[in-house]
Design a protein around this nucleic acid. Structure first.
Lengths: 189, 189
DNA sequence: GCAATCAATGAACAAATGTTAATTAAATCG
DNA sequence: CGATTTAATTAACATTTGTTCATTGATTGC
């Protein structure tokens, strides 16, 4: 749990008391590789901190499985839209590798928001952080070619390329696996 | 200013006292069509509510002008990344039509965050709202064709098509103006 | 370890979008 | 209004990505 506090401290300093209120709600859960952490159609009930592992956000479709995002160790993950709007999730969240999560329920988080000085601020900072990430991604999706997105991903997260199957990477980049193969071939030449 | 309070009330009910603290900081500013509200390279100092008009987010480039987002009446607008991280803005914000904004400075907003019960909650809700929008957009950019994005935009915001030059719409959709012309031609047939 | 399954590659052709350049239409400004 | 500038359209060709299908490579589970 120390990592969670460390992560939060980058955003905002909390009193020991507030941290106690928050951390007492956290529950440790393990998910084996390929298990589904959040199922499409169900409502997200948790905000989770990834202590170990990698997850993907995906929409299973008749023709193919659409992966649009990843989340990595030492970050928060949630079906945030479902969580916030209390609507059924539009996507799955799936463990790519064996994962360890620390989770807090929606209701408990509301309690934290209401009963601590700092709850809303943490929530604000997390939402702000998520927004900035999506904004960068929006620009990349509009401006860059698939090849550039792949090269960027390689240089920014080289270790991930090893653990994430290429078909998921391809989907994330916005192309088909065959096209990613083609790009990889070009690059290596 | 009533519209601002109305907008905020959809997120969170505020006490009259909190509203007074917040609204007393708001300053009305007009921007004529084509004027620059936030200049690339400068730091965003305001959170603004659009009382009237439409703005676009753009990056001016040697070869062409890249528009990646719009903001409309009765929503908040800001160079939020620059605002939050206190870094130079990566883009311009420009008035597409004559605009009326109500602005609060970064510093005043911090004061509101610190001196009201509700400041962080408003900030959280705004950031959450922005994040959800970007998430929907991410999926659309990955999944949909340019034609589908154009048709969606037409059905969701039909009035906008009238006011926003097509070259900006094309950029927003992720294609060149020539390609948008081609798509429009196909559709009308 | 082997069979079965799934992932990655490769090639040929189709579809979508980009690029360039010319033409027409619309907006702006005196 | 008329002249000038800017925006939108069109067309021809180039490039990128998608689609289909076959083949090879890697994993999984018994």
């Amino acid at each position: 749990m120390d990592n969670i506090r460390k992560y939060l401290n980058e955003f905002v300093t909390q009193s020991d008391q507030d941290w106690e209120i928050f951390s007492s709600k956290l529950v440790r859960v393990e998910f084996p590789k390929k298990s589904i952490i959040l199922e499409k159609g169900k409502r997200e009930k948790f905000l989770s901190f990834i202590a170990k592992g990698i997850v993907r956000f995906n929409i299973p479709k008749p023709d193919y499985d659409f992966t649009f995002a990843f989340a990595f160790e030492n970050t928060f993950v949630s079906g945030y839209d479902s969580f916030l709007a209390k609507t059924p999730s539009l996507y799955n969240i799936e463990a790519i590798s064996d994962c360890v999560l620390w989770r807090i329920t929606c209701e408990d988080l509301e309690t934290v928001y209401d009963s601590t000085q700092i709850g809303d601020r943490i929530g604000r900072k997390i939402a702000e952080e998520l927004f900035l990430k999506k904004m960068k991604r929006e620009m990349s999706l509009l401006e860059d070619t698939a090849k550039k997105r792949y090269l960027d991903l390689m240089s920014e997260q080289p270790q991930l390329i090893k653990y994430i199957p290429q078909k998921y990477l391809a989907s994330y980049i916005g192309i088909r696996p065959q096209s990613l193969s083609r790009i990889r071939k070009e690059i290596s030449i």
